[in-house]
């Protein structure tokens, strides 16, 4: 067994990250009590669903053009929380899916949240919908839901592309409160300009920890911060060294 050339830095980085992850997770409860900075978009979830309850209208949830990747897993956490709240408050929740392979998992997450909220009978399978795996056909399906189904809160968390502005503008036109989150840098300007709240990049990944205060999730956040500090250190030192013509650090990270 031989290490592939050019992967040494990746391996060191992976080991450090995994080690800090397990270190912080093992610290359990003490970690869970650490403060997490306020994320307005996540606090607004309760407000959005509360508003839908008062108006007697529904909540729409989309994960965008999701596949089984990190943003989708982060979005499942928010969906589970949202479905639990809508179940408790007896608000209809419509979830629209883009990827057929993600659809059954979405169904399970929503159904599970309804069961855990003690309202298994309130779960409606027809409200978790696969629309299309063609981007703009999916977009027209979501627009149809926003325009026809009396939606008061439009929640969008995950992987969005050209359809993001279409959803946001139609939601705005329909008077929905809109809470969004994505790590797709190219769609952030649209969400921040049009929607009421937007989770930016890593805030989406922190959602699970923020909503559940689960020690595992909070520990993972701490490991991410260690990673960020290391990245900052490397960027600063690397910039200074490169500015003075020293390339040894650049060469080292290429190994």
């Amino acid at each position: 067994m031989q290490l592939i050339a050019g992967r040494l830095t990746h391996l060191v980085w992976f080991v450090i990250f995994t080690a800090s992850l397990s270190f912080y997770i093992k610290r359990g409860r003490r970690i869970a009590e650490l403060p997490i900075r306020r994320v307005a978009g996540l606090d607004a979830l309760d407000e959005a669903i509360g508003r839908a309850t008062e108006m007697g209208m529904g909540v729409h949830y989309t994960m965008g053009l999701q596949d089984f990747e990190a943003q989708t897993f982060a979005s499942f956490e928010i969906l589970r929380y949202t479905a639990g709240l809508t179940a408790k408050m007896d608000v209809p929740l419509i979830v629209s899916n883009y990827r057929p392979q993600v659809h059954p998992v979405t169904e399970e997450v929503v159904r599970g949240a309804y069961v855990l909220a003690g309202k298994p009978d309130a779960y409606q399978a027809d409200n978790v919908r696969f629309l299309s795996d063609q981007q703009l056909a999916y977009a027209s399906g979501v627009v149809g839901i926003l325009e026809r189904e009396r939606i008061a809160a439009n929640l969008m968390f995950g992987n969005f592309y050209a359809e993001s502005l279409i959803f946001a503008e139609v939601g705005q036109k329909m008077g929905c409160i809109q809470v969004t989150g994505t790590a797709n840098t190219h769609q952030l300007p649209f969400f921040t300009a049009v929607c009421d709240y937007c989770l930016i990049g890593e805030e989406l990944y922190a959602a699970g920890a923020y909503l559940s205060r689960n020690p595992v999730q909070v520990g993972s956040l701490m490991a991410q911060d260690v990673g960020k500090l290391l990245a900052l250190l490397f960027i600063t030192v690397g910039t200074v060294l490169s500015s003075f013509g020293q390339k040894w650090l650049t060469d080292l990270v290429k190994k």
């Binding site: 050019g6 050209a162 797709n184 840098t185 190219h186 769609q187």
Partner: peptide
Amino acid sequence: ASFGTVVTGGSTAVGVPGLMV
């Protein structure tokens, strides 16, 4: 990143800021 293959292409204008990195 893994094999050093040369990659180029074109994006819709909205995707350009993210790819500039």
